[in-house]
Design a protein around this nucleic acid. Structure first.
Length: 104
DNA sequence: CCACTGACTCGCG
DNA sequence: TCGCGAGCCAGTG
């Protein structure tokens, strides 16, 4: 099963996202030296234990969308955590990546 | 080894 | 605006 160290490069990039900013799965993959492997980032975050220090909630889908989970519960939590950091959502539930994107 | 499944993206119609 | 198909690739059975 999961050896978290396999995803260490991904977690390193996620940990570098500043508070109040967000990145996308694709961007994280690219910065981790894994271009085109956005799905791998999603998998890596999915295996992340709650205790892990990496701010998983600062990773969103392309276009600033919150990617729906299987159960959906943590998606709501993600929005709350981001709002706590000052990230605003549009009426459609989207994040303005020009404003809140990492290096946007 | 094969088929299926995704916390993904992009392009088309 | 929305859905669909195609790439994508690592786990799982």
């Amino acid at each position: 099963m999961g050896d978290l160290r396999r995803y260490e490069r991904i977690y390193l990039v996620v940990a570098a996202i500043p508070p109040g900013r967000v990145s996308t799965y694709g961007q994280v993959a690219e910065l981790a030296g894994l271009p085109g492997r956005a799905r791998l980032v999603g998998r890596a975050l999915g295996e992340l234990p709650d205790r892990h220090p990496a701010p998983w909630y600062r990773v969103v889908g392309a276009g600033g969308r919150i990617s729906p989970r299987g159960d959906g519960s943590s998606a709501d939590e993600q929005r709350l955590l981001l709002e706590d950091e000052g990230v605003e959502f549009s009426a459609g539930g989207l994040i303005d990546l020009v404003r809140y994107g990492w290096d946007g």
